[in-house]
């Protein structure tokens, strides 16, 4: 059991860890919002902002990781303290990946700009998918800030909406490319965008589940996306339902 002075030192470090993690969450959310904004308007000017944010996110992630290792090595934390530190250690990776996907989307926006695609028509579901994915990130990070486990206890069920949109958009893009209505290169990039958004939502779910663990000690059972997809209505043309995001709680590919 730490003595009073040690407890104070631990609390100082925990406070710093919490502040840094909240900052990281804010930066990641800003990055993805900016990337989606750029995608929506095909505005290449946003990309530079996202690239800078990605660098800041990475630097902060490294700092948080170091703080966590120091805390574990120096204070041998237990109970809530231990859960907070391991949660921060885990979700920094998720937040960093969200920032990285934001950067990937921003890079695609630059390429879209060069090809001047027409994102109207059936591709109109992509902004909707982006909105749902960003909302999941927002909910998960807010739950972390407010230590609110209940708001994210079933967050993986909301992620299914993103997975469903992903499947539907995939089918639409493939159909348009088959019909010659969409340039193959542009279509492939849109598929990448939806893939990134789907992964962002997965990382939001990871964060939400970690918040539940941090607050309550309950670790959510691992349910594969394919298993949950069995309960969903089938996508048109028998598309790759459940084939994406198969490792729901896994790391990036």
């Amino acid at each position: 059991m730490p003595q009073a002075a040690e407890r104070k030192a631990l609390e100082r470090s925990l406070k710093k860890l919490n502040e840094n993690t909240i900052t990281l969450a804010e930066l990641s959310e800003i990055a993805i919002r900016k990337a989606v904004y750029g995608l929506d308007r095909l505005d290449p000017g946003v990309a530079d902002d996202v690239f800078i944010l990605d660098q800041e996110i990475y630097a902060l992630q490294v700092e948080i990781e170091k703080t966590c290792v120091d805390l574990l090595a120096l204070h041998a934390p237990v109970a809530r303290d231990l859960r907070t530190i391991t949660t921060c250690l885990k979700i920094t990776t998720d937040l960093d990946r969200i920032g990285r996907y934001a950067k990937d989307i921003a890079e695609l926006v630059l390429q879209f700009h060069a090809k001047e695609p027409n994102p109207a028509g059936t591709l109109g579901k992509i902004p909707r998918m982006a909105e749902v994915a960003v909302d999941l990130v927002d909910r998960a990070t807010r739950a972390f800030v407010e230590r609110d486990a209940e708001s994210v206890r079933h967050i993986e069920e909301d992620d299914d909406a993103v997975d469903l949109l992903h499947d539907e958009i995939f089918q639409e893009i493939v159909a348009q490319m088959k019909a010659g209505a969409l340039d193959i290169e542009v279509g492939a990039r849109y598929i990448l965008v939806t893939r990134y958004l789907e992964r962002i939502a997965d990382h939001a779910v990871n964060i939400g589940q970690r918040v539940v663990y941090m607050v309550t000690g309950d670790l959510a059972p691992r349910v594969r996306a394919a298993e949950r997809a069995k309960g969903r209505p089938p996508a048109r043309d028998g598309g790759p339902r459940g084939s994406t995001g198969d490792n729901h709680r896994g790391t990036d590919k």
Binding site: M1, R7, P77, A79, R83
Partner: peptide, 19 residues
């Protein structure tokens, strides 16, 4: 007990908040 104590008193003791 050390990862997720059920009683708040236990939590407070093992994390050094009193004792």
């Amino acid at each position: 007990l050390f990862e997720r104590p059920t009683q708040e008193l236990t939590e407070n003791y093992i994390t050094g908040r009193f004792g």
